[in-house]
Design a protein around this nucleic acid. Sequence first.
DNA 1: AAAGGGGTGGAGAGCGCTCTCCGGTTCTGT
DNA 2: ACAGAACCGGAGAGCGCTCTCCACCCCTTT
Lengths: 350, 350
Amino acid sequence: MDELHSAAAGTAPTLEDVARVAGVSRATVSRVVNRTRNVDPAIQETVRRAVAAVGYVPNGAARSLITRRSGSVALVASGAGEGQEEEFRTRFFTDPFFSRVVNGVMGFLRPRGMHPVLMLAESEEARDEVVAYLRQRSADGALVVSTHADDPLPELLVAAGLPAVLFARPARPVRIGFVDLAHQEGARLAADRLVGQGCRRVAVISGPLDIRAARERQDGFLEAMARHGEPLVPTAEGNFTQASGEAAMQRLLLERPDLDGVFAANDLMARGALHILREHGRRVPADVKVVGFDDSSAAVDSRPALTTVRQPVEEMAAEMARLLLDRIEGRVEGPRSAVFDPVLVVRQSG
Amino acid sequence: MDELHSAAAGTAPTLEDVARVAGVSRATVSRVVNRTRNVDPAIQETVRRAVAAVGYVPNGAARSLITRRSGSVALVASGAGEGQEEEFRTRFFTDPFFSRVVNGVMGFLRPRGMHPVLMLAESEEARDEVVAYLRQRSADGALVVSTHADDPLPELLVAAGLPAVLFARPARPVRIGFVDLAHQEGARLAADRLVGQGCRRVAVISGPLDIRAARERQDGFLEAMARHGEPLVPTAEGNFTQASGEAAMQRLLLERPDLDGVFAANDLMARGALHILREHGRRVPADVKVVGFDDSSAAVDSRPALTTVRQPVEEMAAEMARLLLDRIEGRVEGPRSAVFDPVLVVRQSG
DNA sequence: AAAGGGGTGGAGAGCGCTCTCCGGTTCTGT
DNA sequence: ACAGAACCGGAGAGCGCTCTCCACCCCTTT
């Protein structure tokens, strides 16, 4: 009640107010509130009562002015080539990948009292804003989900001495931490599966080859197929959207009408392939087997449900957050990284 | 170069440093940086040069300590009944709805130099944290995406006198702004469409009926069907996930094997219905017509693509952000709201 | 019993910024 | 030509907090 009253009074109570009510000094109240030093239990109780009475909540700005910590981290969606900003945004937000990253990051940050601030860095202006935001200490560090190979943001952050961790290994070697997946290994799992299921004429729907992960998935797959004695595998490039997967599948069917296996570099494109295959009268998995990548919600939602290579995005995002907090809180010095192992998840499509 | 140098020196330059280099007072630098009052052009130039030379970026905490603005707003996913926290999170993050809200909110906030901080309020503890976060002025207001009817968060925010706007009209009348859709009207569009396409035996897959929007969509549909002389329409309740839509469709087919039209309260459930219908040998739209709701990415991705009722989530989210900023910046006094009109989007499924 | 040590509360100095005043200069009006 | 207004830069007070000292008390040690 008092709380509401003082809130309605328009002027939020300060440490000073609590101190006056409790009959102690500002410093003592601060110590009780932050559990920063031993305080006489009786006084502690008095202070807590006073805090409750006036409805005190510490002012974040005043606190972070001196602690030099904001309690939040920037979660940055970075990438996009020149003039593709709009496309980047819609693609990024439509992909289940985004939600999974957010979910994983929040799962880690929340119990630690930290919060993610969403930012986009799809243009030079936006990148500068991200750097400025961090430099003005509005966030303690950055989690960067970088898609494009030649994204300049990681290097900008490193140059400015700002704590940052990437999702995906940077294209050029930069002194920065990251989490990543063993994409090639994942692609190998897909290849082994298709071959193991008796496929002899397989094809690949790749992601944009200027994205490292997309290239690694393709390379890993082709390499594994070569080892299986199939050096000639037709490929078609998509951009990780379902529509692009559909288009790629169309092209592959034209090129190789008798194909009996498809590896798509993500589930969304695999789902597109499924649609096209059905339209062309191919039964999956009877006539053609399809293996996706990611194990996103799209894999479960597809009919037939997708056999896919699991990328543990939530765990990776959580680890990314952990690496960043370790940096921020000074537990580690140099950049640290973690590479996760993919797992094959067998469902109906292959 | 200087910029990098001073950054590397570990101690960020302050207004004082810029003032010294420029040979003016702190106040003048502040005025130039903030364009807050006219300053002699020559001095402006000198100051700007000094700012660039030392690589100055204003400290956010110090600034917001005095301006009482943080430059960010909380974007809160609120709801979840007792003990359903986990389910709430996965459902929320899997639904394309979430991404669309984020996209719309960012589109509006970004040009205005504001940033969304993601928060979850699926438990009492989490709700208190959200309120505390706002009371400590770490965010200037809250955008609340509330799913559950008896969500206490809106009232908590109002009671604390905090600026907030909801996505969806609150269940109980609360003095708070919101954006919403004319759900009943949207459902009517769906009913008219199905009847207009010759459907005589239609069924409804509804959302969770303790969610206001879900109930309105169902009520609106049933009412419209009654007006069309079809008072008896079988319904099955889902929870807005594809899996629940599949289960609901199964039940409806059992109850009414001869149905020729289905209205699903969102696209995800409609997609589930599509799958079940195909498994049961029903052709869409030849045998059964299906109309969804939302016009999310799921509508476009489905085969056949969904005829659906468009909810302009991005625009609504942007409007929600606009209403909040109006409140924060004191342009309006009381809570203001906006209700959007749905539009029928015709594709293949109905 | 005197000296030393650990624990606890208070005083006070800032963190880096904005903003109100104030004094000085230049412009306007009569 | 002179009063008054308009304009512009500087000084200085604080926003609300944390944190370093310092003073004090009580307990231990010789």
